[in-house]
Design a protein around this nucleic acid. Sequence first.
DNA 1: CATGAATGAGCATTCATTCAT
DNA 2: GATGAATGAATGCTCATTCAT
Lengths: 205, 205, 205, 205
Amino acid sequence: MSSTEPGKREIIMNASIKVFAAKGYHSCRTLDISKEAGVAYGSLYQYFKSKDDILLSIYRDNWNFLLQRMDKLNNLDVSPASRIIQIVDFIFANYDHNPDLIKVMITEVPKLSQFYDQENQELYYRFFTGLAGIIAEGQKKDLLNKEISPIIAAFVIYGAADNTIRQYVFNPDFERLHFPLEAAKNQIIKFFIPSYLEPIKKKNA
Amino acid sequence: MSSTEPGKREIIMNASIKVFAAKGYHSCRTLDISKEAGVAYGSLYQYFKSKDDILLSIYRDNWNFLLQRMDKLNNLDVSPASRIIQIVDFIFANYDHNPDLIKVMITEVPKLSQFYDQENQELYYRFFTGLAGIIAEGQKKDLLNKEISPIIAAFVIYGAADNTIRQYVFNPDFERLHFPLEAAKNQIIKFFIPSYLEPIKKKNA
Amino acid sequence: MSSTEPGKREIIMNASIKVFAAKGYHSCRTLDISKEAGVAYGSLYQYFKSKDDILLSIYRDNWNFLLQRMDKLNNLDVSPASRIIQIVDFIFANYDHNPDLIKVMITEVPKLSQFYDQENQELYYRFFTGLAGIIAEGQKKDLLNKEISPIIAAFVIYGAADNTIRQYVFNPDFERLHFPLEAAKNQIIKFFIPSYLEPIKKKNA
Amino acid sequence: MSSTEPGKREIIMNASIKVFAAKGYHSCRTLDISKEAGVAYGSLYQYFKSKDDILLSIYRDNWNFLLQRMDKLNNLDVSPASRIIQIVDFIFANYDHNPDLIKVMITEVPKLSQFYDQENQELYYRFFTGLAGIIAEGQKKDLLNKEISPIIAAFVIYGAADNTIRQYVFNPDFERLHFPLEAAKNQIIKFFIPSYLEPIKKKNA
DNA sequence: CATGAATGAGCATTCATTCAT
DNA sequence: GATGAATGAATGCTCATTCAT
């Protein structure tokens, strides 16, 4: 096998994303997953502890990927505001690149009670503390509005992006009928984030 | 019976909110609901078609309540920005008043596949079109930033409030440890919404 | 009320025959019966002990009616063979007159486990001993074939008539498509019963 | 495994026949079947779609077996009358060989509404058309009474045999107390069928 | 590692019957 | 007698998981 050939674990995860997105987590059977993946029924349990574990693995991999992206940005010499915009941009790009994955992240992962376990919530929360850290850094450098709470701002910014994408997930026709996803992203990047984060003094300049 | 005495349907719904919030929709049994409500097992099915129907009824009642609130506000002689702030304020007040209900709305309702049925999504979406209408009205009156898309702004504003409350739901300790809910609400009302919605010219004033 | 006006008990029984025939005993609800009868839900239990009791009452009434008919025939000055033919004729006429009732007797009554209770089987069996009695009487008078067992002959004769009608019940189209019920009855009365019951010597006469 | 070892499907069917005969279809639980068969609860559903499907499979297998028997007889160089007698003989032998099976066929199968579905009724009816075919063949060869309708004769003959056996099923004591099954069969074979089917001219000979 | 037959725990719902009015 | 809201016992089936091969 070449090193680029996906391993069975990855094959199973991708097949799961496809069937979870198509039929929903509870409506699909482990048999559906094994068929889609082209592996034997029992083989799923060689790579995952349980059906839940597959979905949680999808969540963890994807969320860690987002955290890594944030880490990389933090190591670049880029302004805090620009980093935040790039994170939002990345979130939208993720949806564009693999809508099934985001659909699963938004609609299926929260169905798992384990998602609300401390461990998984800590991982989830790590994104918000990271985002808040960037904002706090910007405030310290007098680049961002010091009156806003960094952690609340992190909730607000992610909530805005997530809820916007959510509408496209729920209503796949929305884009075609009303508003291109790219335009929605630009709305958030151009009008919402700058006005919200920029220092008040700027207004009075 | 006095007119204020809650009917059995209401008793069952309130009991369901309590057990859904405590144990989760899928983990609780219909027996748990009937015991909590103090009614006979079979009585649930005199008032609701199924367990699913109970949860969907909670959703519909609550969401319709929010829509009614918006309607009432629209009939008052209040500026668009003020109305939007009052809607956000109402959403936070709702959580304060009945955290179990909001927990159910946020974590349990989306678990139901029927929530994604056209009918229920139309009801859900009605809130966003309503909010967008208020914003469009404000733009027409030169009171709000004309560059922002009303519908995207509606997604952004609700997403910001919803995701903030969501963190309090997931982490009940958050408030005690870090940030009072009231302060979070004020952050959104004072810094996020005005800066996002106010006309650009104001900045240059 | 005039004496010819049917009482509620009779109304309920007739309504039950209609819905049992249309939907089957197990598929119909007591609510269906009360609606068809135009009486209140709970009123059924003023006239019958249970749903089972309604069906068993239909059976008993109908079977007793058949037994009474046989008794009346036995009191007339008619030859045994003629009496048997008149009984068979009566069974066919019954189906002609009230197909729903016979459908219930054939397809629904045997579904009740109580039908196989001693008491009900004794009633059922009484018809066969009665029929056997007529045959034995004919044999004693040298009018019928003495080699045949009266009780087995009773089984044979009733089975022949019952199984023929049964086909019309199962296949309501049979008559229209293939064979009028009247012709089937005549086949049994003209060719089967005489040849089976008449004395052997007649053949050599 | 040896080739004579019964498969699990067969084991489950035989166990079902036993418990259906003993407790009745509706009174027995699927758990009773799995215990009697000595297989796991869920294994029933690997071999059968449902509890109903088990009973219908018993019916279909048994009825097809009867049809095959008739086919084999038709391929032998045997007179029509003799073939009919052998079919009746086979029906009685069946009961002798496996009374539980016949009890289930007579008392339980007709309880299933699906038994009255077109597909199952067509299978059922195939026996009568087969029997009628033999009679018609005998009439064509001047061996049987041409005045009788073959299809009605088929109903009459099967009804006679079936109703006789039915009494032994309902009253297991009947044989011991009154009449050996063998004698009942002989009554039908010796006195009923020949006199009914033989040509009229014989009578006048 | 791969397979898939075997396993059995878990639960919403129906509906005949009751009984307070 | 009439009513119909309230009752709660009773059970077939699914499907994630295991494990012998």
